[in-house]
Design a protein around this nucleic acid. Structure first.
Lengths: 210, 210
DNA sequence: ATTGCATGTCAACGGGTGTAGACATAAAAG
DNA sequence: CTTTTATGTCTACACCCGTTGACATGCAAT
């Protein structure tokens, strides 16, 4: 079969270089914002001309969309545990562990974070967060409005932690694995976010918030 | 007195236009990232030529520094309450209230957030956060290492909340004042962040974090 | 009225960007 | 070997950017 062999004997395979581009782009978007990543940078990483990037992905926006959203495979936020162990699971995201799943989860958040303030990428990021991150978390929590709110609080901590880590170089650390004290507090924060709401005023302390 | 009158009868006052530029710049940096804010945009807002912006501030970086860090006045993160009411105070930051102090605090965080991923602005942001935000919070908490950690956790929530609010349009809301349910959870998160650490394993639940 | 300084404008430079079309080359098909 | 198709390169466009130096204007002092 001719077409099959074309795939097999790929000396110059478009799919391979395309994948390489996507990978290079991911690494770039992971470290810089949407505008600061140039198509020429990506092309240079792969060892290819700029024009090819534009041709393969149509536009920079679509390339970014494919990096963030994935194309065909449904690569959403992965949660391998039930609601009970969720706090542990989330806390573990900030350890420097080699867990592939966890690393991808965190990396997705960092990409979101880096390009979140960018007129061009904003819409894409917005959609990807709701569909690929917020929804999966809410699903694990059982759905419903309460679940959505709790998911939002969890994401608040995750994003805050990601900012502190990758931008401020404090908090959840930068040198692989946060200090134990911070790790513990982070865990407690997740617990609080996941805990059911005290329903109305549980104590007097809640009231003077205004 | 000639010089005094020159200040008083300012028809073309350099200080005024400079202040206008700074204000326009602040509004811009509040809504877009460092790279997306053009000096020409700022100049157009004030109704002035681009060159003047460059001449008055030397460079874009210095302009940004002055917007974020302030120039002479020590405008750090303002906390008007003691450690006890701190959680309330912080939660109130996300209300759409007219409190000038609170609004400036949140705005500073948003600016930090928007330009945090930007090679040029990174160093400035980094310094400003440590010196003007983290330190004041830690001071209110009484200083010491524990205070620094707690301040870091507080900032984690603040930044996460700011991302959710101004980027994702969820969580701490965007339409002035978060939904009560989220407000309550936010308050609990701050309480947790500020609470003293349970010191080692308080319950068995803390252990399986790894 | 004229000098002189502060204030602001104009034009341009060098560099960077994403994108598109014409062209070249490798490799498979006939 | 020749033809054809996929794969990749080259050139160039039109636009944006920050910055600079020369020039124009307003305004106070002489």
């Amino acid at each position: 079969m001719s077409f099959g062999e074309m795939i097999a004997r790929r000396r110059r395979s478009a799919l391979d270089t395309r994948a390489s581009m996507l990978n290079a782009a991911r690494q770039r978007f992971l470290r810089e914002s949407y505008e600061n990543v140039g198509l020429r940078d990506i092309a240079k990483d792969v060892g290819v001309d700029v024009a090819l990037v534009s041709r393969y992905f149509g536009s920079k926006e679509e390339l970014f969309r494919e990096v963030l959203h994935g194309s065909d495979k449904a690569d959403k936020f992965q949660i391998a545990v039930g609601p009970e162990e969720l706090a542990c699971y989330l806390t573990a995201m900030f350890d420097g562990k080699e867990d592939e799943e966890q690393r991808e989860n965190l990396e997705r958040l960092v990409i979101v974070l880096r390009s979140s303030s960018s007129p061009q990428a904003a819409a894409i990021v917005h959609e990807a967060v709701h569909e690929d991150v917020l929804q999966p978390i809410a699903d694990v929590l059982g759905g419903g409005e309460e679940a959505e709110i709790r998911a939002a609080m969890v994401l608040t901590i995750l994003l805050g932690g990601a900012v502190m880590r990758s931008v401020m170089s404090v908090g959840p650390d930068c040198g692989q694995g946060p200090p134990p004290a911070i790790r513990r507090k982070l865990y407690e924060l997740f617990r609080t976010a996941l805990k059911e709401t005290p329903d109305a005023a549980q104590e007097g302390a809640v009231e003077p918030v205004a």
